[in-house]
């Protein structure tokens, strides 16, 4: 069986990413941990992404509620809007939407930052100063992305549900307390946990792909743009693939 060159390239890159991931885990568990840089990255990756992810969550909650309302009215079940929005936000929209925004903002910025550090010899400079650049740059960023996306997703879910409450009250009337209690009444542990766990994988995917693309940037400044771009594309595709896998697994084992 013969493979085309592009197929070989895809397999080759998948192998390199697997090797890169293996190195991440090796470096993660070897001393010394760059705690200060990790906290700095958590601030950049987490706190600075909150306005964007919060805003998109809010708008999504608002728009979806406005759009589904007429259909639900047709069936006389508009009172189920809080339950429906809560379930769809927590299980799917919140995690995937936040992860995609996160890939666009953080994946590209990591890819571009490390890429420009590579082409301007800053990574080599760390090496010659006796600092492990992989540990300092890659481990801290991947870990920060992995830890911060679940937090951002939880906040995005809450803001999105609040957006839905605002949209609901444009035409109908329901107190915030009742709206929230309706959301939680229909949410089960099996809805929350798989959705929450998958955000760790999404965050890890965004971090590792951004770092991989940036760390191995070639061909000067043109390569930096390419690294940022492909970091977003590859991590977005990976988010959907991981989502598909999680849905299949939870369906097979009968949760969710």
């Amino acid at each position: 069986m013969k493979f085309s060159n592009s197929t070989k390239e895809v397999f080759n890159e998948a192998g390199e990413i697997a090797f890169f991931t293996g190195r991440f885990f090796k470096e993660l568990f070897s001393p010394r941990f760059e705690g200060r840089e990790f906290l700095k990255q958590c601030y950049i990756v987490g706190y600075k992404s909150l306005p964007l992810i919060g805003l998109t969550g809010f708008i999504m909650g608002l728009v979806l509620t406005i759009q589904v309302r007429p259909t639900l009215i047709e069936y006389g079940v508009q009172a189920r809007i809080p339950a429906m929005m809560g379930l769809s936000f927590v299980r799917e929209i919140g995690p995937v939407l936040s992860a995609l925004i996160f890939a666009g903002k953080i994946g590209s910025s990591i890819g571009a930052e490390l890429g420009s550090m590579r082409v301007t010899e800053q990574i080599d400079s760390m090496d010659v100063s006796g600092t492990n650049p992989f540990k300092f740059l890659v481990v801290t960023r991947v870990l920060a992305a992995t830890c911060m996306l679940p937090v951002l997703t939880s906040l995005s879910d809450a803001i999105g549900i609040f957006g839905s409450y605002i949209a609901f009250n444009m035409r109908d009337s329901m107190t915030l307390r009742l709206f929230v209690s309706e959301v939680f009444h229909y949410l089960k542990f099996a809805d929350v946990m798989p959705a929450y766990i998958k955000t760790y994988f999404f965050g890890f995917a965004v971090g590792i792909i951004g770092c991989y693309k940036g760390y191995y940037t070639r061909l000067g400044t043109a390569g930096v743009g390419r690294a940022a771009n492909s970091a977003v594309v590859v991590s977005s595709v990976l988010i959907f693939l991981l989502d598909l896998m999680v849905v299949q697994i939870t369906d097979l084992i009968g949760i969710g």
């Binding site: 420009s116 301007t120 800053q122 400079s125 010659v128 006796g130």
Partner: peptide, 15 residues
């Protein structure tokens, strides 16, 4: 490497 300094052509300052 602590005993050998290296000045890069591009300076390589951490921007």
């Amino acid at each position: 490497r602590m005993r050998v300094g290296f000045l890069f052509q591009s300076n390589a300052l951490y921007d």
